[in-house]
Nucleic acid binder design. Structure first.
Lengths: 166, 166
DNA sequence: TGGTGTTATTTCAACGTTGAGATTATCAAT
DNA sequence: ATTGATAATCTCAACGTTGAAATAACACCA
């Protein structure tokens, strides 16, 4: 029961038996999984005419609670992208009627991005099937394995300084 | 000692206590880790005037063993990108003198991409410090945690069908 | 109240990938 | 040999991100 990374490790063991390449067993798997899972999510969201990044923005606003609005800066920290990318995303989603820009009364440099009624309805509609789809993708792990996996990933993220959503 | 995903889960628990969003604890962490680790690797490779994708191509060829050559198709399956992306990468690396295209004697549709001497020397030079850098990024895990983590990720990858490098 | 440094957003050119189509070659069966 | 289906690579326009510069507003303190 091996995966593509087992093959990679076997190749290195043959070519460079002097090196212990164990980190590749983790780094390579995180990288490949991220790509595979992205593809699956992309396919899922296509059924709702949504890009994955659109759902991410909707979900970030939704889970922030009423009035479902955040500054552009908070959104780009949550999405781990640059400010230019967030400006672009807000533009596109605003023209689709999913979010709207509202002025920030406390700070005129800031804008607040708010879910429209349509955006709120859409994220509420998609959320449950999305979680069910994610659960399907993770179904090969039993509950104990899931917990251990989540705990190890948390340790790693925290050690890399990922402790805030902005 | 929490991470950004713990905050995300807490937000969902407050906003949608009726839903069990556990899959996000794994999917969200894989996605964020992948981005963070990519940034770290990018920074590391910059010291060698290398893009991360360039190193990936060099390493894929290197670990395939002498004569250090693979078809374009094998490279794009290993890298999990489309054929157009690989054509572009080969072009750029060939003009940098790191690889060369050689005809495939058995199949004239195929090309074989071979490490040049310079490419081979470069990957040999970078390999050890790269692994040391990866080990540093994973230093927060003790050896037992590493093994469990790698095993869980392997289970997931295999269940998603990632069982070959092409 | 003026000056200096910092922060939030937008703009834009450069970059790399995708996805689809075009081209050329192989394979299987007739 | 010819046809049709499949496969490998290349081409290219569309897309979204990055990274840096521009703009505007805030904060602090002299």
């Amino acid at each position: 029961m091996g995966d593509a990374v087992d093959l990679l490790l076997a190749q290195w063991a043959r070519e460079r038996p002097d090196l212990d390449v164990w980190p590749m067993g983790i780094m390579g798997r995180i990288s490949r999984l991220s790509r595979l899972l992205d593809r699956e999510l992309k396919e899922f969201f296509a059924a709702y005419d949504l890009e994955r990044w659109e759902f991410d923005v909707l979900a970030t606003l939704r889970r922030s609670g009423p009035p479902y609005e955040l500054t552009a800066g908070a959104l780009n920290r949550a999405a781990m992208v640059t400010s230019g990318a967030i400006t672009n995303r807000i533009d596109r989603m605003a023209s689709k009627g999913l979010v709207e820009r509202v002025p920030d009364s406390g700070d005129r440099r800031s804008i607040r991005v708010r879910l429209t009624e349509r955006g709120l309805a859409l994220v509420n509609e998609v959320l449950e099937p999305h979680i069910a789809n994610e659960a399907r993708l993770l179904a090969s792990l039993d509950p104990r394995e899931r917990d251990h996996l989540a705990a190890a990933l948390r340790t790693l993220l925290a050690s890399l300084g990922d402790t805030t959503l902005g």
